[in-house]
Write a protein that binds this DNA or RNA. Structure first.
Lengths: 188, 188, 188, 188
DNA sequence: CATGAATGAGGGTTCATTCAT
DNA sequence: CATGAATGAACCCTCATTCAT
């Protein structure tokens, strides 16, 4: 059960902790984007150049890792939509850019809606959307029939559709989907 | 009278071929609807009351089985939309009723768009949509901006969103999504 | 996920089923006796020359395997004690001969006393003891204070003590323990 | 006054050495009694509120820890049986109270009978038993056939039987076993 | 042509042990 | 000298696929 030998990169010590955590999050992003959501969990550790045990220490399960990944996204998003200039279109832009990770998160949210960490994150995301919708409605850029939950749902659909498409088709898919939602949201 | 030995359920002989095929398709529908898309492939055989070998004989891989399942759906759909009374809303109704299987099919289509059987089936589905869109547009029930591919995409989004939702939430999700697409398609 | 190649001994077909089952039981006996109770479960499969999957098919968990092993012992025991000549000493002889397996069974019984298969087997064993105790008491070879449960407990203690001892010490341990129990059971 | 920075619980410095040692021994007692012998070794460190490294520094392996734990028991026992009033029954009382830890020790003794620390401890325990047996025999409370090794063996059997039993059954098991040994040891 | 057992690679998770700080 | 994160081998179990009967 101990490492049979001292094979290669050894214990870098506790100092490596935060770096490992960050590496794991980055690796998760890359691996999900490259190989989809069904990669072995351990592939994340391998990609991060980190032992299996460290992966489990930092993120006891898939959900925890997804939460960490998405937490960065949401934080970015909050900062980015803090000002008054952001629109729903900007939100969809971001979704397009993060489609695969977003889909992973949405799947996990649906599977673990009771997990408090997940719920909290979902709440933060919804807050962003609420603010955007209010602002856009006030500006008359979207119809009164549009609710925040409609935009949230559209966000999920867009992400999923992109994650599903072959990379070559993504631009076209994104364009079509966004036209669809623009039509759905526009004032009547 | 031929000897009818072994009237149990073992080897029912060659005559069982077509019956087995049908049983497998039905079983696939049930199993996917009940337990989602991640059930072991072998669960289909068990549910159908058929040996593993027969499953593989009839359907060499998951795609082949999904194609067979969806083929029945498309055939139904073609028959059902042959007349003049069917609308896009009716199409979405059917999608709602078959959400989980539809999602499976969509995933497989995306993963095997080169498989001729898949392509053919996709073509048939698209034909149905084209006809519907033409008719609805002629009737002035949808806007001129709506293309068949928009409806196809909406179909996939709806199915996926439903397959993803917890069973208890499906009614609400379906309602919201359909409102969204109605708004997107309505004449301006 | 499929066998990468056709590496070595391939599928011997369903006919190998019963033989595999028997081989697994025999292997379990050997492995437990040789390496104690903490061997990896998979070692049994390896020793039997059988795939992991087959082990799990025949015996879904450790308990099921232990039950099967001990079932043979109990059946033997029942047959052997059917006549009138058998004594408690003979029972202890058998325990000595099967010490390690007996210990495994006792441990599992204690861990899964609710498992019906385990309970049934325990009941059969107790029956044998009850018969022996009645007969011995009638013959005046043991005291009236001796209950079947005392003998059952002694049986377990003897087995465990032997399983624990180094092989070289077993004869001495067996001798001492049996003297101890003989003293405990003898008429006053 | 020296700077007492970091009064939390991190690195308490060299002074914590003996305290840690004692905490680990106490933790081992608790953890084994509570969760049995198969807890992760690291659980002891966690329970003691001490780093993994300190556990390994003080006790390089499981045996070393078990020896330390049992050493306290034996020392207590020696003190307690120094006077003239103690009986074998008192010894068994103590075993009952310490069943799980005793079992752990017995297993380790059997696995490492060559380890000098283990041997020494075993010797001390045996000394206690020898004294008790002599005294009890002189008092006519046990038969001449009883040897110290018989009592030692009974001790181990009792501990094991208790450690094995479900907590709810322990009282009954203890009662039956002690009756058995009393019968075995009583003068003829 | 059906059956269903056999196979074994692979992914999940745990935990003994080491070692940088 | 304490800390506690890092490591990775090992075990568990599942399930896709094959193939003797």
């Amino acid at each position: 059960m101990p490492p049979t030998k001292d094979s290669g990169r050894s214990n870098r010590g506790p100092a490596a902790g935060p770096a490992n955590r960050a590496a794991l999050i980055a690796a998760a992003r890359e691996v999900y984007a490259a190989d989809g959501l069904n990669v072995p969990f351990s592939a994340v550790a391998k990609r991060a150049g980190v032992g299996q045990g460290s992966l489990y220490r930092h993120f006891p399960d898939r959900t925890a890792l997804a939460v960490a990944v998405f937490e960065e996204n949401v934080t970015d998003l909050e900062e980015d939509t803090a000002g008054d200039e952001r629109t729903i279109d900007d939100l969809l832009d971001r979704v397009v850019a993060q489609a695969v990770v977003s889909t992973a998160f949405i799947d996990l949210i649906n599977a673990h809606r009771d997990d408090p960490a997940v719920a909290h994150l979902g709440g933060r995301f919804r807050e962003v959307v609420v603010r955007l919708v209010e602002r856009e409605r006030a500006a008359g850029r979207i119809g009164d029939h549009v609710e925040a939950d409609d935009v949230t749902m559209a966000t999920g659909m867009l992400a999923t559709e992109l994650a599903r498409a072959a990379p070559a088709d993504r631009a076209e898919v994104a364009e079509r989907a966004r036209r669809l939602f623009r039509a759905a949201f526009s004032p009547r």
